[in-house]
Design a binder for these strands. Sequence first.
DNA 1: CTCCTAATAATGCATATACACTATTATCCG
DNA 2: CGGATAATAGTGTATATGCATTATTAGGAG
Lengths: 152, 152
Amino acid sequence: MSGFDPETLKGVAAECPGFQARATARAVTRYYNACFKPLGLTAEQFSLLVGIGAVEGTTLVDLANSAGVDPTTLSRNLQNLEGQLLVHSKGGRGRLGKQIGLTISGRKLVVDALPLWNLAKAELSNRLGKEKLRSASKLMAELAEAAKTSRI
Amino acid sequence: MSGFDPETLKGVAAECPGFQARATARAVTRYYNACFKPLGLTAEQFSLLVGIGAVEGTTLVDLANSAGVDPTTLSRNLQNLEGQLLVHSKGGRGRLGKQIGLTISGRKLVVDALPLWNLAKAELSNRLGKEKLRSASKLMAELAEAAKTSRI
DNA sequence: CTCCTAATAATGCATATACACTATTATCCG
DNA sequence: CGGATAATAGTGTATATGCATTATTAGGAG
């Protein structure tokens, strides 16, 4: 038991950036999931569709990098979206990569989702304050970058 | 296609707090996962063990609330930790709830993990800056709270 | 032109996440 | 005391996540 102290652990829970980042992502994702639910879309699926629609002819690797998600995770998430006919792809294994794009249905769904996304963001902004929301986003981006370049 | 515009979508991706929160959680969690890997522990498991060890006789519901995680998620994550004999529990279904605590092995593992956690946090702090790391944690906590109380 | 290599995608496995639902039980009220 | 109720735990199902590994292929070296 040497070194075990509940008081110390209370401090650890309170100051762990990893814990806080996950807790925040869970809370915010739950909120957006609920917002997109009428469209049968999850928050992550919305983000992927937006990422795909934003860059004509993007590839799996490019999208994985810009979303900060593992390519193997993205591979499966894309399979799901392709199964729903929201995304089309060309190519696959091999050095040229897999080019992906939105289908007509995918574009339509994104267009339908945008108003919900705007409402959701506006409500968050009201609760937290516009400036704080902006700061939070900026700091989260910097924290993510720091984590990507950190090793011990 | 009316309303579909890639330029608009670039803006959406850049200003979505949900996307940013998830990307950050992924990056930070990957980092901590790598740090705890020598102990066969994930970042989330570490957080749970800390949360359990911090409060004597805590319950599943209490822990779920303090971690901001769904009770059904926690139920399964605890099953995993119990299977590894890191956590013991008493009670179950019913109004008294399930009391959980760390086993001797669980306490030992937390004690062993604390130095790694400190190193990992120190490295993040060096990269991002102590003040920014603190601000990020605080703002993420406020954002999570805002998301929990938001509805559209 | 052929072989090698490096970049890429996909799969196996495990954990994490949550909603909808079911099962259990202490407590409260009559 | 006995049934209703509310709080709690667990299960079914689905998505999300990533590491280790395998499969594929374009491009370069010879």
